[in-house]
Simulated assay, not measured.
Amino acid sequence: MPSASTRSALNPKRLRRSCRLTSANTANTANSTNGRRKTTTLIHLITGGTGAGKTTYARALADEIGGVRYSIDDWMTALFWMDAPEPPDFDWVMERIARVEAQMWANTLQMIALKTPVIFDLGFTTTDHRAKFIDLAKGVNITPNLHWIDIDAEERWRRVQSRNTSRGETFAMDVPRDMFDFMEDRWEAPTDHDAIVITRVTK
C-alpha cells in the first residue's frame, strides 16, 4: 500500500503543472470509477534524481489510475543482474537496458490498443532518454505526461541510505555514494524544451 506521504504527493492540490499543451490526449478527468481516477492520458513518464521516490510514486499512480507500471529495476533484477560482470560494465548494462525498453514499448502498444494507461519508471535521467520516449508516444499520437519528482540531493541521499539499510519493497540494489554521485553528474532536470505536460511533485 502506498505510504501516507506518497498519497499526499498524489493529491492534486500538491501538484504544480507547467508546460501545458492543449490536446485531447493530455486532458485528465476528475471523475472516478471504483475509487480510481479516470485519465485520458495513456502514457506517463516518471523522472527524478536517484532516491527521489520514483518507484513508490509510480506504484501509487498505477493504482490510482488503473495503469500498468513498467519499472526498469524490476526487469533488470529478474532478467540480468544475476549474470552481471564484476565489477559492473557500463556498456554491458546499457545494452541490456535497451533490450528491456524495446520489449516494454512493444507491450505498451498492446496496452494503448486496450486504452490502458502505462507508467514508465525508467529513471529518465537525461533529456535524450526522455526525448526518446516522448517521440515514441507522439509517433502513436499520444502526448505523454512527465511526472518530475523534484527532491533536493541531500534528502535523496538520506533516502538512499535508508533504503540500503532497510532493503524494503522498492529496494533493487545497494547504491553506494560513488554510484549516487555518478548518477548526479548525469542528471538533467526537465525544462520547457521537453515540450509536454509536466507534473512537478516537490514532496
Rank of each mutant, 00 (worst) to 15 (best):
S5C: 06
A9I: 08
L10E: 03
P12L: 05
K13A: 14
R14N: 14
R17I: 15
R17H: 12
L21Q: 09
S23L: 09
A27Y: 10
N28G: 11
T29S: 15
N31T: 14
S32D: 12
T33P: 00
N34E: 14
N34K: 13
L42R: 01
L42I: 00
H44Q: 02
I46W: 07
I46Y: 10
A52V: 04
G53A: 08
T55M: 01
T55R: 00
Y57G: 02
A58N: 09
L61P: 00
A62F: 07
D63E: 13
G66V: 03
G67D: 06
V68N: 02
Y70L: 10
S71R: 08
I72P: 00
I72R: 03
D73A: 06
D73Q: 03
W75A: 09
M76L: 13
T77V: 14
L79F: 07
F80E: 02
F80H: 02
W81F: 12
P85Y: 05
E86M: 14
P88R: 08
W92H: 05
W92E: 05
M94W: 07
R96Q: 04
I97D: 15
A98K: 10
R99G: 06
E101Q: 02
E101T: 00
A102I: 01
Q103W: 03
W105K: 00
A113F: 11
T116I: 13
V118M: 00
V118C: 00
I119A: 04
L122R: 01
F124R: 01
T126R: 10
H129D: 11
R130E: 01
K132Y: 10
K132F: 07
I134K: 01
I134Y: 08
L136K: 05
V140T: 07
N141L: 12
I142Q: 09
T143M: 12
T143E: 14
P144W: 04
N145D: 13
N145H: 11
L146F: 06
H147F: 04
I149D: 03
D150R: 10
I151A: 08
D152T: 04
D152K: 07
D152S: 07
E155R: 11
R156G: 03
W157D: 07
W157P: 03
W157H: 07
R159D: 01
R159N: 02
Q161D: 11
S162P: 12
N164G: 09
N164E: 09
N164T: 09
T165W: 02
S166M: 08
G168S: 04
E169R: 11
T170G: 11
T170S: 12
A172R: 12
A172T: 12
M173L: 15
D174V: 15
V175F: 00
V175M: 04
R177W: 10
R177M: 10
D178P: 12
M179H: 11
M179N: 14
M179G: 09
F180A: 04
E184Q: 05
W187T: 03
E188T: 04
A189E: 14
D194W: 01
T199N: 13
T199R: 09
V201I: 08
V201N: 15
T202A: 02
T202D: 05
